[in-house]
Design a protein around this nucleic acid. Structure first.
Lengths: 247, 247
DNA sequence: CTCTGTTTGCGTACATCGTACCTGAATGGC
DNA sequence: GCCATTCAGGTACGATGTACGCAAACAGAG
């Protein structure tokens, strides 16, 4: 029956190990996904091709299609595997600020460990079980605080937007240098450097210049810069919480 | 001299129209970019291949490389052309809230007109002249309000993150349906629908369920929903402005 | 054990992509 | 009119996702 009707990867169960006579599957969906994640970590997501993953597993490219319907579905699986690395307590603590900070820092850590994560996560809507788990934790951190569900959803979205944007700003240029093949040093000096210098020296963008030259947080450790922006987002949320002694 | 050393597209001038004897260029960088934008608008950015663009212009694929070094550079040019559509007054009005709202709504409009814009814009750091113009306007809207440059940059980044995220949420599912080739109706009913229903019925994510089922803004016109979140972001900024009667 | 039906492993093949290279035509200066 | 120069565009290469089909492996029936 080759006419698999197209359905979400999360609805499509993996081939059972013992469904009847025939060869036993030599690999698993989870194993394929883990290999793809490892390759993407080491060489970028564009290196995680079907052939390369299969080669790493010691098999042929087409074998992977026994475990994953399409390459895009594999991306969803990779995202969800990495979201599974995010460790959260069983329930919220009651301190919404601490809970949301925890989620934010955990996602940042995952995004730094896997530099392809944010690009994939924001390139397409995906709703894997692990992502849902993290999302639900963030939502419940703001529950029972006098906010209606639309505000809760909106604030979590706002936080999410900030985290994704901040991580992108943190690794964006580095990733771009790697993607073009140049080493970051040379890329910065010979490729983007001259242009930025020209823009600065033109004097046409005074505030942009100040944000480059006069910034103090720009030379802060990235983690502190992240926290700096995160605090502003959390303050924005706190301003809408009536009993806002942050707990 | 074919050893063009790699440099930013913004530093690489277009071939002069009259540099010496030889044929006159039949096209222009701007013309190639506009064609690419039109194709991407109509059929998605993945349809704007070098061959397709050239075909549309009535020429061969390789001819385009006389105007654009690489395909990625063409993406930067497309982004900047669309950012050029954003109309802003010559200077800020003095009402920072109105100015930032204007930028946000203009970017949203551009993102809806060109459904590929946000995906490209957030997939790689780019700094074209038109993007710089818009960025500078947003920065200067918050200038002279008692904020230091780090706060100004941070708030504009926060706003930018929200706008990108909100647009993605607005067109994300629609785009995904188009990308997979199914019509949105069928995609929603047969593809993602059953999974979401299963998630909801499992009852494992009560707040996620409420955000789907009890939301009032979810059934609001998209423009109002955008404004709803935008107001929250602007409130967050306003809370940090000392003389905050919004002007 | 032998046979048979089922399921997986995987090689082959195809369409499509970006783009390196090369040939030939067009064109302005002498 | 000749020539150096420059662009148009065909051909070609390597890489991609993946449709297709065949051979191998294995469980159960006889």
């Amino acid at each position: 029956m080759p006419d698999e009707e197209p359905t979400s990867i999360w609805m499509l169960p993996e081939r059972q190990e013992r469904s009847g006579p025939g060869r036993r599957p030599g690999y698993s969906r989870e194993q394929v996904t883990r290999t793809a994640v490892q390759i993407a970590d080491a060489e970028g997501v564009e290196a995680a091709t079907m052939r390369r993953i299969a080669c790493e597993l010691g098999t042929g490219a087409m074998s992977l299609y026994r475990y994953v319907p399409k390459r895009d579905d594999l991306f969803d699986l990779m995202i969800d595997m990495v979201m599974g690395e995010i460790e959260l307590p069983d329930g919220t603590s009651g301190d919404w600020r601490a809970d949301l900070s925890l989620v934010a820092h955990q996602i940042r850590a995952a995004g730094l460990r896997h530099s392809w994560l944010i690009a994939l996560l924001t390139s397409r809507p995906t709703l894997g079980p692990q992502l849902l788990r993290v999302h639900e934790f963030a939502l419940s951190a703001l529950d029972r605080r006098g906010l209606d569900i639309d505000d809760i959803t909106g604030f979590v979205g706002m936080l999410s937007d900030y985290v994704h944007g901040a991580i992108r700003r943190e690794i964006g240029w580095l990733e771009e240098a790697r993607r073009t093949g140049l080493d970051p040093e040379r890329w910065k000096r010979d490729y983007i450097g001259p242009y930025v210098r020209q823009v600065v020296e033109s004097g046409a963008h005074p505030l942009f210049n100040r944000s480059l030259l006069e910034s103090r947080t720009a030379h802060l450790p990235p983690a502190e810069r992240f926290q700096y922006g995160l605090d502003r987002v959390l303050n924005g949320i706190g301003a809408h919480i009536t009993s806002d002694i942050s707990r």
